[in-house]
Simulated scan of single mutants.
Amino acid sequence: MSSTLRLAEQLISRPSVTPDDAGCQAILAARLQALGFECETILSGPDNFRVTNLWAKFKGFSSSALSGRAQAATDSIANQELKTLVFAGHTDVVPTGPLEQWSSPPFTPSHRNGVLFGRGAADMKTSIAAMVVAVEEFLAATPQPNLSIAFLITSDEEGPSVDGTAVVVQQLKARGEVLDYCIVGEPTSVDRLGDMIKNGRRGTLSGKLSVKGVQGHIAYPHLADNPIHRFAPALGELVATEWDAGNEFFPATSWQVSNVHAGTGASNIIPGELVLDFNFRFSTESTAGSLKTRLEAVLQKHKLDYSLKWTLGGQPFLTTPGELVQAVSASIKAETGVVTELSTTGGTSDGRFIASICPQLIEFGPINASIHKIDEHVLVSSLEPLKNIYKGVLERLAAL
């Protein structure tokens, strides 16, 4: 059994349903400390929703463990401004769903026909295992690399994402920590390992709109004011609006209604209020501020009596092709022969927080077809190539 597979199974066997880390990060910290990483556990959130975060940064091996030549290299590198590569991910997983529907217990790593089953197998414990083993092998060959390495691991990615990576990033900002590159181990591959990486994500902006009317008997509409009727023309205009045209990396910004409710349940009452939930998924061609302004202008144009509550879930981010994209693409091609596709599709990830302090960030991990599903799984044959790709990125960035 490879070191990557062994570590992946250790992590999968921990029932770390968000926000419970269930001891996963202690396993990781022990491995990283043995390599010379300084590990810091950052706890956040209320007692009934305690989140565990791990920030680990390579500080180098002790001088007693280095030869004279290696020590000289260490002294030379110490005087340089090294760039930092961060491996980021999450140890928390989504709930299992009905246990009786699983072919094998979700927190008992199981093998069938070359496939590893277990909750978190694809999202994203194998990525974390591959990252750690890649660093172990890289440092064994290059004890004092021309590159600083760090890990940012949270147990609050599948939950509200309030006390996880966002908290760590704020602390790193306050300390003046400089991050140059980041790889988030999200499962981005579609059909083959490495066929897609994410070099950005759209922003997400949600709103809860309440349109006021006057409740009344449906037989006396002149004594009431129907908010559904009032809002209908504005809804048509919002649906037809082109918010932006996107760009070469992002599709056009979309506006979608996710829920609408009005009425008391009785068929003879005109409702006094309509409540509508909606969401923007927006490109870098728009800002949260501009979208808010434009939407409210439509509501005001139609002279609606309304209240509106906004929730910004994340800003869009984009890494244009550069050192990191080139290193990841070249590593994928060298290991698998696959020419990777850059994409910004899909939902949000913790990359949205890290991107605020890291100019080059991509997401790359195993095939994502089974994530969050019953019998989540990953191909065992993909684990070593995944580890080798992460290791190849380290080697390429250290050589710059």
Score class of each variant (00 low, 15 high):
Leu116Arg: 13
Leu116Asp: 11
Leu116Trp: 05
Phe117Ser: 14
Phe117His: 15
Arg119Ile: 00
Gly120Phe: 00
Gly120Gln: 02
Ala121Pro: 03
Ala121Asp: 09
Asp123Phe: 00
Met124Thr: 03
Met124Gly: 04
Met124Ser: 08
Met124Ala: 08
Lys125Phe: 01
Lys125Met: 02
Thr126His: 04
Ile128Asn: 07
Ala129Arg: 05
Ala130Gln: 06
Val132Thr: 13
Val132Phe: 07
Val133Thr: 14
Val135Lys: 09
Glu136Ala: 07
Phe138Pro: 05
Phe138Asp: 09
Leu139Glu: 09
Ala140Met: 08
Thr142Cys: 14
Pro143Tyr: 05
Gln144Asp: 13
Gln144Ile: 07
Pro145Phe: 02
Leu147Arg: 12
Ser148Gly: 12
Ile149Arg: 14
Ile149Trp: 05
Ala150Glu: 04
Leu152Pro: 03
Ile153Trp: 07
Ile153Ala: 11
Thr154Met: 09
Ser155Trp: 00
Glu158Ala: 07
Pro160His: 14
Pro160Ile: 11
Ser161Asn: 10
Val162Gly: 09
Asp163Gln: 06
Asp163Trp: 11
Gly164Cys: 06
Gly164Val: 00
Thr165Met: 10
Ala166Lys: 15
Val167Cys: 08
Val167Pro: 03
Val168Leu: 08
Val168Ile: 11
Val169Gly: 13
Val169Met: 14
Gln171Gly: 13
Gln171Lys: 15
Leu172Glu: 12
Ala174Gly: 10
Ala174Val: 00
Arg175Pro: 02
Arg175Gly: 08
Arg175His: 12
Glu177Ile: 02
Glu177Tyr: 02
Val178Leu: 14
Asp180His: 15
Ile183Ser: 10
Ile183Thr: 08
Val184Phe: 09
Gly185Thr: 03
Pro187Glu: 08
Pro187Ala: 10
Ser189Asn: 08
Ser189Glu: 05
Ser189Asp: 05
Val190Glu: 15
Val190Gly: 12
Asp191Ser: 14
Arg192Ala: 11
Arg192Glu: 12
Arg192Val: 02
Gly194His: 04
Asp195Cys: 06
Ile197Asp: 03
Ile197Met: 11
Gly200Glu: 06
Gly200Arg: 06
Thr204Val: 09
Thr204Leu: 09
Ser206Cys: 08
Ser206Tyr: 01
Gly207Ser: 05
Leu209Arg: 10
Ser210Phe: 00
Val211Asp: 11
Val211Ile: 12
Val211Leu: 04
Lys212Leu: 07
Lys212Arg: 14
Lys212Ser: 11
Gly213Tyr: 02
Gln215Ala: 15
His217Glu: 09
His217Ser: 10
Ile218Ser: 15
Tyr220Thr: 14
Tyr220Gln: 15
Pro221Arg: 09
Pro221Trp: 04
Pro221Met: 06
His222Asn: 13
Leu223Lys: 14
Asp225Phe: 00
Asn226Glu: 09
Ile228Arg: 12
His229Met: 07
His229Ser: 12
Phe231Lys: 08
Ala232Tyr: 02
Ala232Leu: 03
Pro233Phe: 01
Ala234Tyr: 02
Ala234Cys: 13
Gly236Trp: 00
Gly236Ala: 10
Gly236Cys: 07
Glu237Trp: 00
Glu237Phe: 00
Leu238Lys: 13
Leu238Met: 13
Leu238Trp: 04
Val239Pro: 01
Ala240Met: 03
Ala240Val: 00
Thr241Phe: 01
